[in-house]
Design a protein around this nucleic acid. Structure first.
Lengths: 172, 172
DNA sequence: GACAACTGACTATCTTTGACTATCAGAGTA
DNA sequence: TACTCTGATAGTCAAAGATAGTCAGTTGTC
């Protein structure tokens, strides 16, 4: 079995055990444990724990530094999932972004407030920096995806807490 | 755990206990207590108790000298105004963007949901496009300003509609 | 040959320290 | 009073230590 897969399983086990939905790692400790180069850990993270895989990574350098991995639960059927994975591709023209945002609001997939926030973030004024249009398109796609992922997470939390509330009610 | 974090918590506890919104410290005493170099205290102050963190520091050298740390309470609309008009300039480092966003939420100026949306839009992953860091900084500033303006506009609308509702109520 | 896995050298960032500097209050002195 | 000296503070900065990130190049696998 490939080392990367072993490390991947190891991290996923840690995530499974942890009470919250995240774990904290020391890159060097992990590399030591698996007898590999520290950068191998980065490789595993960048190929198997990306936002598209449903993970978010935070890290700190320097003394006491560490890597934090958070698992974002997403439902297969969710329309937002489809958007994040398929509809919003690697690049997005300004017109398309505006259109898509409007459609999302009108279809009730996201709220009007969220739609306005997205529009603000993707507005031509906000992105008025001297870079080629191709780069801007990539940027639009990435920002939109990131924001939609955040909304999906929020919905998940709402669902979860609603479910928890329901369970509490049933238990009384 | 990092010493700096321990000292930070310690100071924040002191601030929490104190009646007013400030505390006075002796740098050397604190350093003695934590068995560290006195300059460590300066490091903690300059990295965790800055104006962006919502704190003001005053100090006096010489015999009987001390350090005074004050937690600044800003009114919500003032903070938003200040950020839009002054603090968010033409460019903004990633760290600063994250810090300010957290401060906005913690001070109750914006909701947690809005904070997460901003964080999503400004996340390093969202902005992972091949442009110089200087351009990214400009981008961060522009996107953040655009989103904050959107929130300010929304607040305005809420105020207006609240006023309108009030008028309606008064007229009935 | 193409693509995934892996490595190591170099870089970036954060923390901690210590040597040196700046400032102040009070005591001593003219 | 006015001046100076001294001890008791706090501030600055550069260097060292402790992490993590990046990327080009190598190795392995299909």
């Amino acid at each position: 079995m490939r080392l990367s897969d072993t490390i991947e399983s190891f991290i996923k086990e840690l995530l499974g055990e942890s009470e919250e939905d995240g774990v904290e790692l020391k890159r060097n400790e992990l590399a030591e444990y698996f007898q590999c180069a520290p950068s191998q850990i980065n490789y595993v993270l960048s190929t198997r724990f990306t936002p598209d895989h449903g993970y978010m990574i935070e890290s700190r350098r320097g003394g006491g530094g560490c890597i934090r991995i958070v698992h974002v639960q997403r439902s297969q059927s969710d329309f937002l999932d489809y958007l994040i994975r398929e509809r919003v591709g690697a690049s997005l023209a300004d017109k398309d972004a505006q259109l898509l945002t409007r459609q999302l609001v009108e279809s009730g997939t996201i709220t009007r407030e969220d739609g306005l926030m997205i529009a603000a973030a993707l507005s031509p004024q906000a992105l008025a920096v001297p870079v080629p249009e191709a780069v801007k398109s990539t940027l639009r796609a990435r920002i939109l995806r990131s924001m939609l992922l955040n909304i999906a997470r929020r919905n998940q939390r709402v669902k979860q807490s609603a479910a928890t509330a329901l369970i509490r009610i049933e238990h009384t």
